[in-house]
């Protein structure tokens, strides 16, 4: 299969995000195993920003470096919705989708506060060549204030790009998890639970994740201008690529590894923990959709070394048991729902 051009779409505004994007996000995107290694002039870096931030981007050295590697375009965001920035971001995505669909391009939804390990873009191109149209990943959220200085100190290359291997990034990640990510850990008592992703630590060697929600990092739509209701994370992927056989879920961080970077002040409210997986099942009962259950069945290995050791096997078996337990509760809920429906009937 011929590989289509890739539009890397990044909505970014505000000084903090602009800085993170230029220093880390874009710099890691330009590493040799990512965009710099792809000699494809049809690729496009499509940035959405405000008029005020445009000059900052255009005057940055890394932006000029990007222009040497691929076509770069900046579109101006209209008014920002400060109460709901996701709505503004979705507007940007809709505009970018319209452009990419017109050019029959694949789209990479690349948020500004991301660090992408070297080789990720090569993996995406390989998957596109294999006929995959939707690639989904999870990104660990890390503490920005701790991780960015280390990235800049240790991994910036002479040409300004930022090169870090997946295992180096994971080694950094397991030591600097953001509190929101900690809320995904299954065996932590002190924090609220965020059941969208469930994770287990494997010592200092990495994590195993079982996820309901994962992020569509790359979409090469079958359906042009497919509508979505809220964000591209939600219902866009299945609308644009209805055939599940064309989806690909990254389950090994060696293949593709990215992390999100967030400040400590960013927080969310989760579910109270009771230590019983029935809480996760109850959440899933209300919020999960069929494709989320498919995601949950997959083991996602985020690792700094090999994953064949006994500790990995033990944690993987534990994650399997929890998934079985969740499904067992869901079957009970379904039985009860059917009984109630029969009674009403």
């Amino acid at each position: 299969m011929n590989v289509p051009p890739i539009h890397v779409i990044s909505p970014v505004w505000g000084s903090a995000y602009i800085r993170c994007f230029l220093e880390v996000g874009l710099a890691s995107l330009l590493s040799p195993g990512n965009l710099s290694g792809l000699a494809e002039p049809r690729n496009l870096l499509h940035v959405f920003t405000t008029e005020a931030d445009r000059q900052t981007i255009e005057s940055a050295l890394i932006w000029r470096k990007a222009q040497e590697v691929l076509d770069c375009r900046i579109d101006i965001v209209g008014a920002l919705n400060a109460q709901n920035p996701h709505a503004t971001m979705s507007d940007c995505h809709r505009r970018a989708i319209a452009l990419a669909d017109g050019r029959e391009a694949a789209m990479m939804f690349y948020n500004p506060d991301i660090v992408l390990a070297d080789g990720g873009m090569s993996s995406l191109v390989r998957l596109l060549a294999q006929g995959k149209r939707a690639v989904q990943v999870i990104g660990l959220r890390l503490l920005k204030d701790e991780v960015v200085p280390m990235l800049l100190e240790r991994h910036v290359r002479p040409d300004g790009s930022l090169g870090i291997t997946p295992r180096e990034l994971m080694a950094m990640a397991v030591r600097h998890l953001h509190p929101i990510t900690m809320m995904h850990l299954h065996d932590v008592d002190d924090l609220d639970l965020m059941p969208q992703e469930i994770m287990w630590r494997v010592g200092e060697e990495g994590l195993i994740a079982r996820c309901f929600h994962i992020h569509p990092i790359l979409v090469y739509p079958r359906v042009r201008n497919a509508p979505f209701s809220t964000t591209v994370d939600d219902d866009y992927l299945r609308a644009a690529c209805p055939d599940p056989a064309e989806e690909y879920m990254v389950t090994d961080s060696d293949e593709f590894c990215l992390c999100e970077l967030s400040g400590m002040q960013r927080g969310v409210v989760g579910l109270p923990r009771t230590g019983n997986d029935i809480d996760i099942a109850r959440w899933a009962w209300t919020w999960a959709r069929p494709h989320h259950y498919e995601h949950l069945c997959r083991r996602i290995m985020l690792h700094t070394r090999g994953t064949t050791g006994p500790e990995w096997q033990a944690v993987a078996a534990r994650s399997d048991a929890v998934v079985r337990d969740i499904f067992e509760h869901l079957v009970e809920f379904e039985d009860e729902a059917r009984r109630r429906a029969a009674q009403v009937g």
Partner: peptide
């Protein structure tokens, strides 16, 4: 091969109830 399971059929009543904004049947 990657299998496919019809979760929308397995959990048909649950999905229908959840989508119609019904609350947890246990609570």
């Amino acid at each position: 091969p990657l299998p496919h399971e019809r979760f929308e059929e397995l959990f048909a009543h649950s999905l229908q109830l959840a989508q119609s904004q019904a609350a947890d049947p246990k609570v």
